[in-house]
Design a protein around this nucleic acid. Structure first.
Length: 491
RNA sequence: CGGGAUGUAGCGCAGCCUGGUAGCGUGCGUCGUUCGGGACGACGAGGUCGCAGGUUCGAAUCCUGUCAUCCCGACCA
């Protein structure tokens, strides 16, 4: 199935695209820019969802659901918000079809034009804040901590499976607070939830930071983000958390009476991660042999494959295999025993290797005699022979060590590909010869950032939180700067 | 929207220049031998050549139009 699979070095973007399709994660659909997420891909997304959902609930949030459609007038209420999204909105203008008069198919019924057009949500701040106005009257109603799992639509020019699709799945948290400090604390808390998820579950190290004004979310006062580095040296924004100030409260007139009986505007945050995380996960660890999944997100953590010559032999092997399977499952490990007689062992090895199953256990006649199994780990492709005694404990440890190894490997890669540039020439040379993060001084102005972007296609990915102060000169303008910021070419 | 390319079997492609019975690889089905890293052999199923016109005795092939997709750029989680 994975013959003719390109290597990363040959063509990274084709490698990614083929990987997604051949590992059966997703495919392009009949609808331009929209993908079908296939069962293997959706299973990973479901694991991500359930872990994140628990993290949100553990931090006091509840799920709710708001409409897919947003009246056009809502959009215009927050000026910079409209500006940020206007160019990529799908708009519903009619509500009925009819048979065409020439009998050739079906057309839009012009008589069914909507009084007010509806926007298919690209994000839900406006509809949610319009709703919150009725929910929030007193400081006793705060904080309001809500999350929504939903699909959104952004009419992008060019799309790539998982990384940028016209419709995508995500979660968006929308919270309301009585004070500025509390809202900022919420935005920062959610950023750390995302960073925790990325590093400890996805095994992808991330830089926590804030966005420069140019890169800030439309309508936000401050945008916090986590930035990851992919294997081709390009940056990927993996999650964002916004402090929205009073912008949306003012636009939608959401006020509350404080303890002091004063009418005040509500402070807001919003935060989200999307199916783009799937792209990050795939690109971060996978290799020229296919997908590599961290054990904590792998829908199947262990696959058991029997080797046999006939069905009698299979029956004997199955006894041992099923026993091992049950014992592993009792330890909370997801196991698949693939005893299909329709596929050859070699075919199965390649199949599961390509699909990224972290651990493979092989049992054959030779093993039965010796009381052993062969265990192969996907991350290093190493094979070893394990005694069946205590196999559960060993597999648990192995899964832990694969999870850790993937993170360490990704971390080492990021460290190797994070470099400092002190001059404009150095900066350009690094970008063109050694893709990765470039730490450089910036004078803090949007104009300089824009010029650097125009000339190099590199953007400021973020200004790291807890950045070490350092006196320097802006690589572009030569003006003084107090800290380095993270530049990179990005997805 | 600007520049470039491509539409032929499920998938990947050849055939087109020079018009004359639709071809290869892979995948799919049946049977047999295999089974510790993508097995082999035999037989078999599968295509209105993107769509619509035109030229011609005859069009996958030549001409015109049209639709779709992909790549590069502007946009972006």
């Amino acid at each position: 199935m994975a013959k003719d699979f390109p290597t990363r070095a040959e063509n990274y973007s084709q490698w990614y695209n083929d990987l997604v399709i051949k590992a059966d994660l997703a495919e392009t659909s009949a609808v331009r820019g929209c993908m079908v997420i296939k069962p293997s891909g959706y299973a990973i997304w479901e694991k991500m969802q359930s872990i994140l959902d628990k993290m949100f609930k553990d931090t006091g949030h509840s799920n709710a659901y708001f409409p897919l459609f947003i009246p056009k007038s809502f959009f215009s209420k927050e000026a910079s918000h409209v500006e940020g999204f206007a160019k990529e909105c799908a708009v519903v203008t009619h509500y009925r079809l009819k048979n065409s008069s020439d009998g050739k198919g079906i057309i839009v019924d012009e008589d069914a034009k909507l009084e007010e057009e509806l926007i298919v949500r690209p994000t839900s701040e406006t509809i949610i804040w319009d709703t919150y106005r009725n929910w929030i009257k007193s400081y006793r109603d705060l904080p309001l901590l809500i999350n929504q799992w939903a699909n959104v639509v952004r009419w992008e020019m060019r799309t790539r499976l998982f990384l940028r699709t016209t419709e995508f799945l995500w979660q968006e948290g929308h919270t309301a607070h009585a004070t500025r400090e509390e809202a900022i604390a919420e935005a920062e808390q959610m950023l750390s939830v995302y960073a925790d998820f990325a590093e400890n579950y996805m095994a992808v190290p991330v830089i926590r930071g804030i966005k420069s004004p140019n890169e800030r979310f439309a309508g936000a006062v401050e945008t916090y983000c986590i930035e990851a580095l992919m294997q081709d040296g390009k940056a990927l924004q993996a999650g964002t958390s916004h402090f929205l100030g009073e912008n949306f409260a003012k636009a939608f007139d959401v006020k509350f009476l404080s303890k002091e009986n004063k009418l005040e505007y509500v402070w807001a945050t919003s935060w989200g991660v999307s199916t783009r995380l799937m792209g990050a996960l795939i690109m971060a660890h996978s290799d020229d042999n296919g997908l590599v999944l961290p054990p904590k997100l792998a829908p199947t953590q262990v696959v058991i494959i029997p080797i046999y010559k006939n069905s009698d032999q299979l029956a004997v092997i199955s006894e041992t295999a099923v026993k091992i399977k049950n014992n592993l499952q009792a330890k909370g490990i997801s196991v698949k025993y693939d005893d299909r007689e329709t596929q050859k062992p070699g075919w199965k090895f390649n199949e599961y290797e390509f699909k990224g199953v972290p651990v493979r256990i092989v049992i054959g006649p030779r093993d039965l005699e010796n009381g052993t199994v062969e265990v192969a780990r996907r991350d290093t492709l190493e094979k070893s022979v394990y005694q069946i005694i205590d196999i559960e404990k060993k597999i648990v440890n192995l899964l832990d060590s694969i999870q850790d190894n993937l993170y360490q490997k990704a971390l080492a890669f990021r460290d190797e590909n994070t470099r400092k540039a002190d001059t404009w020439e150095e900066f350009n040379t690094l970008l063109d010869t050694k893709a990765g993060f470039v730490l450089a001084h910036w004078d803090g102005t949007p104009e300089t950032e824009q010029k650097i972007k125009d000339e190099t296609k590199a953007t400021i990915r973020c200004i790291p939180l807890n950045n070490t102060p350092e006196e320097g000169k802006c690589i572009y303008s030569g003006k003084p700067s107090k800290q380095r910021v993270v530049f990179a070419r990005a997805y």
